[in-house]
Nucleic acid binder design. Sequence first.
DNA 1: CTGAAAGCGCTAACAA
DNA 2: TTGTTAGCGCTTTCAG
Lengths: 329, 329
Amino acid sequence: MSAVAEAAGVSRATVSRVFHGSTPVAESTRDAVFAASERLGYVPNVMARVLAARTSDIIGLLLRGPTNPAYGLLFGELQENVSRLGLQMVVVAPSRAEGANFERQALNRLLGLRVGGMFVATGVIRADMLEPFLDKVPVVIIGRPESHPRIYSVSYDEDDNAYQLADAVAGQGHRGVAVVTPAGGNSATEHRRALAMTARLREHGVRVHPVAAPTFGAQEEGAREVIELHRAGHVTAAMFPADLRVLAFMPYLREAGLRTPEDLSVTGCDGILPGIDMIGFTTVRIPVEQAAQRAAEVMKTLLDGSTEIRHERLHGTLLPGRTLGPPPR
Amino acid sequence: MSAVAEAAGVSRATVSRVFHGSTPVAESTRDAVFAASERLGYVPNVMARVLAARTSDIIGLLLRGPTNPAYGLLFGELQENVSRLGLQMVVVAPSRAEGANFERQALNRLLGLRVGGMFVATGVIRADMLEPFLDKVPVVIIGRPESHPRIYSVSYDEDDNAYQLADAVAGQGHRGVAVVTPAGGNSATEHRRALAMTARLREHGVRVHPVAAPTFGAQEEGAREVIELHRAGHVTAAMFPADLRVLAFMPYLREAGLRTPEDLSVTGCDGILPGIDMIGFTTVRIPVEQAAQRAAEVMKTLLDGSTEIRHERLHGTLLPGRTLGPPPR
DNA sequence: CTGAAAGCGCTAACAA
DNA sequence: TTGTTAGCGCTTTCAG
């Protein structure tokens, strides 16, 4: 910076002003500074800037499982929206290699960077873990229903998603349906979806057979039970709380010599997977793009001093596919 | 920090030592410091630390298109490997909203953070753009063939991938094949794959019909031409340089009333998409996990002072699927 | 509109 | 093993 200042024949303070200053700078000086920094290849040191300014326009994203296409999409969309608003974004992902409280580690990594705001898109960090930082950093939780009175959240209306699917299944005339139901501790979202599906189906007078799917990460959990239920003539359709689960289920179906929807209808949820339309899943598409946009907008207002806290819920849209048909006669 | 120091009855330097110091600290003092910082909720300021130490163990990842599942997977795997080696990682993604040279912007964001090392996983940043920083920061390019004498790279052997697929297609007895060939400026990788496929097919004595696919992002580019070529009886198979392109092609195929592989065989490349096996694409699976592992290991040695530069190429494995069969008679 | 000077929170010799 | 003392590169009053 001193080099640039010297080359441009001004003080360091002026260089600073040219780059970020609120104070006006003479056109000529500005040009001189830009020219000099260009020539010298000057890249401002963000660390020093943040340290001195005690504030940062870098906002952090705590992202669970970038491997999951739904999170990948969220990342991409947030990035677009955030930079459209003139903010910067860096991302950290928790890693199991970081030990027991690995999500905590990732959170600290972000906090250590003294980000100016935080997006939290992970199921496991609990709201009260964030509490100590609320005074220092605006936080927006994305994708997970949250009702903390001091934390803004933008999430999906999972109940509505489930209802849409349940209505579609019931509407086809199915009277016995398997609902794969993951434990709450593993995926709050999937758990909730499954419960909502079950409730709605019952309202329709459908006989529901819940299938437990306790293990985290084992997407095929419950597959055999579903097949059994079908064999025994108890169900003509199976509802899964996530597309990836349907995907994992298909080989079992094929192995059992069954076809969908002729023998058994199946539905998923998410609608994000590229090619989902090709495979033809009946599913609900969650509005990731919209969530990203809202989250970015909200962050902006929060950074601008707003203190209004809301918990927004976005609606998904039913994606009719060929895996849902009427029950076999 | 001063607060902690005071509470623990030591100097700030000692607090610093307890947290990161190479110098030994008495057990008792260490405990006192930890106790105090726990009580006061002290989170070290990474910015200040980096500024003072002039070095950082945070390594940055410049990631193109997190929306693409292949990049998402790379992100996830890198994160695991990196933290297993005791390093931290932050990620930035270029955003088109950042204007013309948006990749440049993202690069600067990373440089501004004064990361201790950089992974570059994006097709567009040219090696010579990185040159000015090579002295300051070790750089590892991932996924893109690179031969810069000062930049380490870990990439996929795209020629070999293409050969495997071409051999499989030729082996089925196809004598006329369409190869969708994107322009080099858009995706160097896909361009290279297409050229290699073409060359290999020709070695097998196959008649190749290149189909230009100039537009970036329009995955369905070339679809109609392929259909035409088939209609005219020129080709019995179509090779695409990426799975996503195959995916985009399928609706056209269906619309034309054609089936695969009975009427037309198709192959892709990447093998990353969840459900790819279900769809049954014939493709090559690129070894993302292995690339991530190597990249992390290499980064570690580079940070430890190694200066050895190599350009590693990893082999993919053929994923036979049901979209490739013998030509119709 | 611009310069001087005082830090931001921390590390790294150098002494003790 | 610990404290003292300079900074790291930048921002921000406060005067001019």
